[in-house]
């Protein structure tokens, strides 16, 4: 501010900043550290592992060499029997290999990525159309819709889980895997649309109208002006909004748990991680490595979008 700090004040300031940053970052360091520790090292309070132990990551990413299966001698004799077809041998082997022990992390990550990506794209696109209309055009019931969006955004998912589940049962979507995923996609769409519309609407208002006007003078239609002038100018914000929607879908647990419980192959990471944690395979290093890998894409997205994200969220202060 206006006066220079005394040395003591500086020390206090840096100490406070350091304390705050540690408070925020410590759980992340704990996750990273535990994911790299050997089980014998867990009780060690130091964050630095005694030995670097990468097995958990290798296992999750499928880099672990396939373990030789322990087969009882009697079965081994059966397997050595040339009369047995290869197919039968495979089936026998499969019974003894510990298939339930493998956590198909890559599969869950792909599921999560696909649904988050599609949600992000669709939501950003639909929201940009609607936000442009609300920010720039005059039409009936406009302010009702603008305020309605805000209202809708504050109605949390918990209040809608029963009716949405019942609706998808009634329509018959919940009875097939494809239908369930489609329901989930629609739900992620409504969870992201209002905030996307809000952020984009605020942003479009900051673009000078004279730019569109000039384009329309040059013979562009309104739609062309939107498409050729506004959209390219808004690229950074569109990207930010996409990331924001992507992350919301990536993190979502409640509806995934309601809809995907019985479709194990299509589960998303949050649900799969929770299942892993409560299962007998729960081992700290594996859970932490999985957490780390779930976290990583979000942190990368966050770093990419950080600049605009903070501003976009606070302009008008909607998201809490």
């Amino acid at each position: 501010m206006m006066n220079k700090r005394t040395p003591i004040q500086s020390v206090i300031l840096y100490a406070l900043v350091f304390a705050l940053v540690i408070f925020c970052v410590f759980p992340f360091l704990q996750i990273l550290s535990t994911s790299l520790k050997h089980p014998i090292d867990w009780g060690n309070p130091s964050l630095i592992p005694r030995v670097l132990h990468l097995d958990a990551y290798k296992e999750l990413l499928g880099l672990m060499p396939v373990k030789e299966v322990d087969v009882p001698a009697s079965i081994q004799r059966l397997l050595d029997n040339p009369a047995l077809s290869a197919e039968k041998k495979q089936m026998l082997l499969a019974k003894f290999s510990s298939g339930s022990d493998v956590f198909p992390f890559g599969r869950y990550m792909l599921n999560t990525f696909v649904i988050s990506f599609v949600t992000g794209i669709c939501s950003t696109f639909l929201a940009s159309l609607a936000a442009y209309a609300i920010a720039r055009l005059r039409f009936p019931a406009q302010s009702l819709m603008a305020n309605g969006v805000l209202f809708v955004y504050m109605v949390g998912g918990v209040l809608l889980m029963v009716p949405l589940y019942q609706m998808s049962v009634n329509v018959g979507l919940a009875s097939s895997a494809g239908g369930t995923i489609f329901s989930l996609f629609l739900i992620y769409l409504i969870q992201t649309l209002p905030v996307a519309m809000y952020m984009l609407g605020n942003y479009f208002r900051t673009i000078p109208f004279s730019l569109e006007e000039a384009a329309m003078m040059d013979g562009c239609s309104r739609v062309e002006a939107f498409w050729r002038i506004i959209m390219p100018l808004s690229k950074p914000m569109l990207f930010t909004v996409f990331i924001y929607c992507f992350v919301i879908a990536w993190n979502e647990y409640l509806f995934a748990s309601v809809f995907l419980k019985q479709y194990q192959d299509f589960q998303t990471l949050p649900l799969a991680l929770q299942t892993l944690f409560t299962s007998k395979n729960a081992i700290w290093d594996r859970i932490m490595a999985a957490s780390m890998l779930t976290l990583l894409p979000v942190v990368i997205c966050f770093m990419l979008a950080n600049k605009h994200l903070s501003g976009g969220l606070t302009d008008g202060g909607v998201k809490g």
């Binding site: 209309a133 009936p140 819709m145 609706m167 769409l189 409504i190 649309l193």
Partner: peptide, 24 residues
Amino acid sequence: EARLGLKLVAPAVGIIGLLVIYPI
């Protein structure tokens, strides 16, 4: 302008109406 505006908000508002207002 009004027609274009309605057209542009229709998909978003339709989805929100169907999946938020109706479920409420």
